[in-house]
């Protein structure tokens, strides 16, 4: 740790001793002070350098002032948006199923009424019907037509309800697109942070790594990239093949 420029030298020490021996107290003090000041200069330079580095690091840290806003506002907002998507899709599914469940008995009723009329109707079509039966058939057919006239507008209304329930797609699509944008922004900023503070290798990993897909037994939810993966089945047929290969 000898830095010639700043450390006290042997010559200076000898000179100091000589001055003191000669009783030149003031000059000796001056010499000591010079040596001391030179050392302090070095300390000041180092502190100055450190201060500048710190300042620059802090400046860099604020790569995007939005990063603060992202953690405070955008991420909680994104959570709310995604909850909203769940709500809207659930609502749409329920509206659709309400309408379908109201339609099914109407369809069943019409089917049953027609089935009931069919034997007598078939006899009429093959000219094999009694007058009495013909009269009662007329009433039955009249009944079917009336019920049909009543039911069909109802079915039409319910079908329109099913149609309208699909309007969630537009809204949820927009919401999800905004959340995707936010995730991209956050990712970009995190990579910037890694560039500043992280090692080269970590940065490369962050930029290229994909989620770990090899966690065999862990539930993953719907597979959205089945065609790019070899560890998942591509549909029910492949499930059946796999199970039958296991002796199922």
């Amino acid at each position: 740790m000898s830095d010639n420029a700043h450390d006290i030298s042997l010559e200076q020490a000898k000179e100091l001793v000589a001055l003191l021996e000669d009783g030149k107290q003031q000059q000796a003090n001056q010499l000591l002070e010079d040596v001391y000041n030179r050392r302090n200069d070095k300390l000041f330079t180092s502190v100055g350098q450190l201060t500048r580095d710190l300042h620059e690091a802090l400046q860099d840290f604020q790569v995007d002032p939005r990063i603060v806003q992202m953690t405070q506002d955008d991420l909680p907002d994104a959570q709310n948006r995604l909850l909203y998507v769940i709500e809207k899709t659930e609502d749409a599914a329920n509206r659709t199923m309400d309408a379908v469940e109201a339609c099914l008995p109407l369809a069943d009723e019409m089917h049953q009424r027609v089935e009931k009329v069919m034997p007598a109707w078939n006899r009429l079509m093959s000219n094999d019907i009694e007058l009495n039966e013909f009269k009662s058939l007329c009433h039955q057919v009249d009944d079917v037509l009336k019920r049909c006239g009543e039911n069909m507008p109802q079915v039409h209304g319910l079908m329109t309800e099913v149609l309208m329930a699909q309007d969630f797609q537009d809204i949820t699509g927009q919401v999800i697109r905004r959340v995707i944008q936010l995730v991209e922004d956050v990712e970009k900023n995190l990579i910037e942070l890694l560039k500043i503070f992280g090692k080269e290798e970590e940065r490369r990993k962050a930029a290229t790594s994909t989620p770990d897909k090899k966690n065999a037994g862990v539930a993953e939810g719907p597979i959205i990239d089945a065609d790019q993966r070899d560890d998942v089945v591509g549909g029910q047929d492949e499930v059946d093949d796999l199970l039958s290969s296991l002796g199922f």
């Binding site: 998942v232 089945v233 499930v239």
Partner: peptide, 25 residues
């Protein structure tokens, strides 16, 4: 289920499942 990994289907078979349907079905 929507779980469609081969390992999972095998796991379910080993656990004694009687049938396995992947969503959407």
């Amino acid at each position: 289920t929507a779980e469609a990994k081969r390992e999972q289907i095998i796991m379910a078979a080993q656990a004694g499942v009687n049938g396995y349907i992947v969503k959407p079905f």
